[in-house]
Amino acid sequence: EPLWIRPDAPSRCTWQLGRPASESPHHHTAPAKSPKILPDILKKIGDTPMVRINKIGKKFGLKCELLAKCEFFNAGGSVKDRISLRMIEDAERDGTLKPGDTIIEPTSGNTGIGLALAAAVRGYRCIIVMPEKMSSEKVDVLRALGAEIVRTPTNARFDSPESHVGVAWRLKNEIPNSHILDQYRNASNPLAHYDTTADEILQQCDGKLDMLVASVGTGGTITGIARKLKEKCPGCRIIGVDPEGSILAEPEELNQTEQTTYEVEGIGYDFIPTVLDRTVVDKWFKSNDEEAFTFARMLIAQEGLLCGGSAGSTVAVAVKAAQELQEGQRCVVILPDSVRNYMTKFLSDRWMLQKGFLKEEDLTEKKPWWWHLRVQELGLSAPLTVLPTITCGHTIEILREKGFDQAPVVDEAGVILGMVTLGNMLSSLLAGKVQPSDQVGKVIYKQFKQIRLTDTLGRLSHILEMDHFALVVHEQIQYHSTGKSSQRQMVFGVVTAIDLLNFVAAQERDQK
């Protein structure tokens, strides 16, 4: 057995438009009618409502009807409940999964919650491996369901041993009777949507819809739904939504950006999952974080739909894509998950301010006199920076000697690579993860907040409520011999709460 199987392995699926269902090699399930009293909570997966979006479509000038398939009504709160249950049931049916076995899954959280929910009911041990950027709410729900959680670096490539995929496979090879159901490759993922989600949409719309818009992560949702719609409703256009920084969209030119990270969760990847059939997507749109969270908040405030950030991405694209539809036509959007997962993220004004998705003037509360002053007023001194090749031991000596707790790590040209902190280095040394002679590049981390000289002290204040420091950066445009230009970030300084307090105190003292 291989040590790991690539999540982007070539698909062996034989589905073709027009091929009889009787030739399918898979076990198919028909939607079942729910009894009045459910035998367990797993029976509350599927049969989610279709809700008309009344205000947002009109606000953006849509002539067509805009409908939302509300997947956050599933038992675990997301569309991923469907595939989690289906993968477990299919693994039980073919004898792969037996009582007492362990389920391991690399996930952005929602599939993990679905699997942990099913594992709690069915009696399996469950280990979820997820990147650090995923919300604390997801972690809390997983723990409450009895799952064990392993976190991995957000910026690790999918084929790196440190990625959530790599760590999951390492655990599988170490733990007896453990299984990775593997949402990236498992046919049960798109089949769950082909058999149930798509049929529900067709039934709820009486077979009449002209466009379907869905955000894409593993691709199982859009693949399964689109294949069924292509068979039953061939005139329906399928629109895929991919965040900026991901590479799922086609044509490839759409993916060209210097951005590699994004805040919206559960969609987009740096590889093409095996289950994603991009041939059934008629057109791709890219979405960005700001519009995703703005539209998610709009869905909550104006439509009462308590959905997550990827739902915002989907609707932001839908109001663009559906401009081509006329009166009497219908566009369906998939709202994948609930706001429950993001209470401390985009639902929080403070978080939105820190990330730059909300401006101070958007909030009406009274601010102190210094709130709208610029960061450049602080008069920061030149920063202490270190090269990635310097040793951890030497870096600790320098920081202690100069009285700093942290320093930016830059390359020879001064471009920011990340940050090192005294606390992080000492804990890594004590844990045996690094040696004093190791290069400081081994303990770089990139989960820090950046701020510009033109940003306000109010925004800085919000950042420092949650973080010990902020890195002050400025952009530099560099022209190359080819005539092309590129933008790079340079370090201007490091600012802490002490710097802000000293500035405010000094100004008030001078005024007296």
Score class of each variant (00 low, 15 high):
M343F: 07
F285H: 15
V415F: 12
V472D: 01
D405C: 01
M425E: 05
I444L: 10
F503Q: 01
S427I: 15
W284V: 01
Q323G: 11
H480F: 11
G441M: 09
Q435M: 13
H474A: 05
Q323I: 05
S461F: 12
L464S: 01
E252R: 15
T294L: 01
G308T: 01
E365V: 10
P408I: 04
D270V: 04
T257C: 08
L453E: 15
K283P: 09
I334C: 01
F503P: 11
E401H: 12
E361R: 15
G483P: 15
A497C: 07
D282M: 06
E303P: 03
L306W: 01
S348G: 01
R452C: 13
K355A: 07
A292Q: 01
F293S: 04
T391E: 14
T454R: 08
T454Y: 15
L254T: 13
Q450L: 12
P408Q: 10
Q406G: 14
K402M: 11
F295W: 13
Q478S: 13
H372T: 13
D438R: 15
S485Q: 01
G418V: 03
S246C: 01
H462K: 14
V281K: 01
M419A: 12
P368M: 06
L306R: 01
E475T: 01
Q302W: 15
L500V: 11
V491M: 14
K286V: 03
T482F: 12
Q476C: 08
Q489P: 15
V275S: 05
Q435H: 12
G266L: 03
L387C: 08
V281I: 05
P408D: 01
G493H: 11
G418Y: 07
T421V: 10
M343G: 04
G308L: 01
C331L: 09
K442R: 12
L387H: 01
T274L: 07
A296K: 01
T389K: 15
T421W: 04
V440H: 06
P243M: 11
K320Y: 13
D510G: 10
I390W: 12
L276G: 04
L335N: 05
V317A: 03
N255G: 07
R459L: 09
I498G: 14
N424E: 08
P368H: 05
G418I: 01
G458V: 09
Q259W: 07
T294M: 01
T391I: 08
S313P: 15
E465K: 15
V375G: 05
R509D: 15
A431G: 13
Q487N: 12
I334K: 06
T456L: 10
I498F: 08
L471S: 07
S310A: 06
V339D: 05
I267E: 07
K484W: 14
M298R: 09
A311D: 14
S287A: 15
K283C: 13
L387A: 08
E365D: 13
V504S: 07
I416S: 12
A413F: 12
G266I: 01
F295T: 09
N288R: 10
V315I: 08
G312V: 01
V491F: 13
E361T: 13
A322W: 01
L248V: 03
Y445L: 11
T294V: 11
P336Y: 06
G423C: 05
G312W: 10
D438N: 11
S486D: 11
R452H: 13
A249C: 01
P368R: 15
A316T: 05
H372I: 09
P388V: 10
L417F: 12
A413L: 12
N424G: 13
F404H: 05
T364F: 09
V415L: 11
I390Y: 15
D499A: 06
D277F: 04
A470W: 01
Y445I: 12
S481L: 15
F404T: 07
